[in-house]
Structures are given as structure tokens and as C-alpha cells.
Design a protein around this nucleic acid. Structure first.
Length: 255
DNA sequence: ATGGTCGGGGACCGA
């Protein structure tokens, strides 16, 4: 089972990129973030035509998540209970007996911002929700745009970035709490080349200079960790014309 | 500095 995550920064603009990527990568499950369109605009037929099911939790202009999947998705959730949120950032579903949690974790803007407070509250609600999922499911994959760089080696210039948002201690602690619940950042299960990132700023020739960060993650429950055979970042779509600022991250499981 | 959205100019958002 090949699983991928990709923040597409508007599905309306990026639909041809997504279809082209699916055509060559042939994922079983593709989790999208920042589709930036309401559900009534979602291009369901485009995915149906290439043999995929698709579900979305969208909104106008901002946020929005979708899951494109070969197999029928079941038991869909779009909110954490007890955490009211108008922003559409969550799409949790069951596919092939695996619980798939597609997340677009808030960016936070900067550590003084109200948006950072919201990010930390959101992460607390996420942690509580994961524990509830663990009561029901053994095999869980949490993937998406985490807007957290797990370690300094996940940042092109960690010294310069310091403890700004994406690298602040509180958000990294939240990620560590999730890992401590029994999850593995599968990209780091394998030997990887240095300086592999999943996002590069559109500005200042950041992609050409590889001035990026690794903030798009795939976490697997302990039960699935040993079944993960490879994980990698596909930089190619970032080279295409009018690309998303993020590129797909992939993990393949022997299930 | 770049890109997307809404709207019809420029503000907001992203990370």
C-alpha cells in the first residue's frame, strides 16, 4: 500500500498536477491539504474517471483537506469532538482496516500570535483525539502538513531559524507527545540523504538553493512501522510550472 | 520577495 501526502496550495489551480502525479506515482491513498475550495466545487468526477474514490472537507478560500483513494473510504470524521472549529483541517477515514488521519495542522504565524495559541490548542485536541482513535484502531497512519519541523536537521538553516514558528519548543513537544503515544516518523526509519525538505518558500529562489524545511510527515503506529518498506520525498512536482510550494511525501507499506 | 483568493484594489494568508 502506497500512501502519500501533499499540500497542493489550491486544488483548483493544481488539479492537473495532482492528476499527473497520480498517473505516474499510482498511490493507493493520497492525502491533500489546502485545497482551498468548498465541497460543492470539489472535482469528484476527475478522480472518478481515473478510478479513485475521493472525499473532501473543504471551505471557501482557506484550508480544506481531501483523501483520494483506490479503496472505498469508511467511517469519516471531520472534527475533533469537543473542539469547535470552523476551519476545515481534518479528514479521518478507515481504508483497508487502517485508520488514516489526514491533517492540516495550523501554521501559527509566529510565537506571539493568536494563531500560535490556536495551533497549540489544536495540537492538544489532536493528542486527545488520537488517544480516542487508539481505543478503536490498532493500525493508524497520521499524515499531512504538520507545520512542524521535527528536528534541526529538518531545517535548511536551523541556527538562522532559531525557535521561530515550525521549530518552537512547545510545538515540537506536542509532536513528541504524539510520537510517544506509539508512532514513528517513517521517513526517519530509513537512511536518508541530508537536507531533504518538503516545502520551499516561493521567494528568494528558495527551491533552487534548497532552502526548505521538512514539515510534511507520515507517522505510522508501532503495528505498521515494521511493515513500512520505504519512505521518500518526490521533489519533481516542485519543478513543474506553477507548482505548489510543497511537494509529495510518500511511504510504502507491505499491507 | 511569490502565489492564491476575493474582487475589482489591496488585504489577508501562507511557513
Amino acid at each position: 500500500m502506497k500512501i502519500a501526502t501533499w499540500n497542493v496550495n489550491s486544488l483548483n489551480v493544481r488539479i492537473e498536477h495532482v492528476l499527473e502525479w497520480i498517473a505516474y506515482a499510482k498511490p493507493d491513498i493520497l492525502a491533500l491539504q489546502e485545497i482551498k475550495q468548498p465541497d460543492e466545487m470539489f472535482p469528484l468526477d476527475a478522480f472518478k474517471e481515473i478510478g479513485y474514490h475521493a472525499i473532501s472537507s473543504g471551505q471557501k478560500t482557506y484550508n480544506g483537506v481531501a483523501v483520494i483513494t483506490k479503496e472505498q473510504p469508511k467511517n469519516i470524521i471531520t472534527d475533533f469532538s469537543g473542539f469547535d472549529d470552523l476551519q476545515r483541517r481534518i479528514l479521518i477515514t478507515e481504508i483497508n482496516n487502517v485508520r488514516i488521519m489526514n491533517l492540516y495542522i495550523p501554521n501559527g504565524q509566529n510565537v506571539e500570535s493568536d494563531k500560535y495559541t490556536y495551533k497549540l490548542a489544536w495540537l492538544n485536541a489532536l493528542i486527545a483525539h488520537i488517544e480516542r482513535e487508539q481505543d478503536k484502531y490498532k493500525d493508524i497512519i497520521i499524515l499531512g502538513d504538520f507545520n512542524i519541523a521535527p528536528e534541526d536537521r529538518d531545517v535548511y538553516d536551523a541556527e538562522k531559524w532559531g525557535e521561530d514558528v515550525l521549530c518552537s519548543p512547545k510545538e515540537r513537544e506536542a509532536l513528541e507527545k504524539i510520537i510517544a503515544l506509539g508512532f514513528c516518523d517513517v521517513f526517519r526509519k530509513f537512511d536518508q540523504e541530508e537536507k531533504q525538505f518538503s516545502w520551499w518558500d516561493y521567494r528568494a529562489a528558495s527551491f533552487r538553493r534548497n532552502a526548505g524545511v521538512r514539515i510534511d510527515l507520515i507517522l505510522a503506529s508501532e503495528s505498521l512501522k515494521e511493515k513500512c518498506e520505504i519512505s521518500y520525498i518526490d521533489r519533481e512536482p516542485r519543478t513543474w510550472e506553477r507548482p505548489s510550494d510543497h511537494t509529495p511525501v510518500i511511504a510504502e507499506f507491505n499491507i
